[in-house]
């Protein structure tokens, strides 16, 4: 029996098996301890070169990855490009070829286009970690959310988790939906229909149009950030109105039949999708998510890095068969 492995790249949770997801979560556990040490560094990725390629502004994710890389002793280079002056596609192909020519080992990429991570992964030998591609997936965020939920419950299997807010434009939502479904959770989404993807029920999730119903149903709420530009694009009338109709407030939570665990991938718009008293309240695990983020990313880097390409290839084939 081949031990579970992730293969060459981490592109999304949709293509992972439950076993692979559990492998990442289990592997993250020992890495939590490394970050608690006085000397927060292990030599595991010594000599590995990792490029953090960010075509979109990001502070948290990039910093979290950087901490994870440095704590594993990897050498890192950060490349940021807004992609505004150059045509994105040309840059991506050329960047891929240039990176390959510099003999790097791994690329962590964020890109505004869905599918961009897969595009890159198919064109370079280095490992590719998707740090968010368009509105498609943000797998490390999904995994750290899963880890945080698992930390607080005995098991994810059978839990009721509702993802609230702008599902339409959210890669975090998609990664969460796949991960939660694969680990056996019941999943719902809640938001105005104008911010829900067409046919989302087809993925096997429930839909709530009222936040009160979502709160009554759920064990866990994962509250997404409402991108402020959605208002100017006409998806919702105003932030004030959004808070009034969809905001997760203390009053609404207190009316719930049970205590809920509150997650938010950050950064928060306090007083828009989430009330400050909820964010800072006893059921919020928002800061644990941040802590877990580093451990999950260390686990991913550890699981993907190195190894003989032939073995990694064989493992990838097995993965594919396993995923059928």
């Amino acid at each position: 029996m081949t031990p579970p492995s992730l293969g060459k790249d981490l592109l999304g949770l949709e293509k992972l098996t439950a076993e692979q997801i559990r492998l990442v979560l289990d592997t993250a556990e020992p890495f939590k301890e490394v970050s608690e040490r006085a000397i927060k560094k292990v030599p595991t990725l010594r000599g590995k070169t990792i490029v953090n390629l960010f075509f979109e502004a990001s502070t948290r994710t990039r910093i979290s990855f950087e901490f994870a890389q440095k704590r594993l002793s990897a050498d890192t280079v950060n490349i940021s490009s807004t992609g505004s002056s150059v045509q994105k596609g040309e840059t991506l192909v050329d960047t891929a070829r240039n990176l390959e020519a510099m003999r790097i080992d791994m690329v962590v990429m964020r890109h505004p286009s869905s599918g961009a991570a897969k595009f890159l992964a198919e064109r370079i030998r280095s490992n590719v970690i998707n740090a968010g591609d368009g509105q498609h997936e943000h797998p490390t965020q999904g995994l750290l959310d899963l880890l945080t939920i698992r930390d607080n419950f005995d098991a994810i299997d059978g839990l009721k988790v509702c993802i609230c807010g702008d599902i339409l434009h959210s890669r975090v939502a998609r990664s969460n939906i796949w991960g939660l479904l694969k680990l056996g959770a019941e999943v719902a989404v809640c938001g105005p229909q104008s911010l829900l993807p067409r046919g989302i029920e087809g993925l096997g999730v429930q839909v709530f149009h009222r936040i009160e119903q979502a709160i009554e149903w759920s064990d866990v709420l994962n509250i997404l950030r409402l991108q402020l530009e959605r208002m100017s694009a006409g998806y919702i009338p105003s932030l004030r109105e959004y808070y009034r109709v969809f905001g997760v407030t203390m009053e609404r939570l207190e009316a719930a039949p049970k205590d809920l665990l509150i997650l938010h991938p950050g950064p928060m718009n306090r007083g828009v999708e989430i009330d400050s008293r909820v964010a800072d309240g006893p059921h919020s695990v928002i800061l644990s998510q941040v802590t877990n983020g580093v451990a999950v990313r260390m686990a991913i880097l550890y699981l993907l890095a190195g190894g003989e390409p032939a073995l990694a290839e064989a493992a990838k084939r097995t993965n594919r068969e396993g995923a059928e």
Binding site: S5, P30, F31, E33, P43, T44, G306, G307, A315
Partner: peptide, 23 residues
């Protein structure tokens, strides 16, 4: 102690070994 993260042969083994607890 689990010494996996300090192994000198991590680059040559195939699928990553499971990391045990260090406490």
């Amino acid at each position: 102690m689990d010494i996996t993260l300090y192994r000198d042969d991590l680059q040559t083994v195939g699928p990553r070994p499971i990391v045990g607890e260090t406490r």
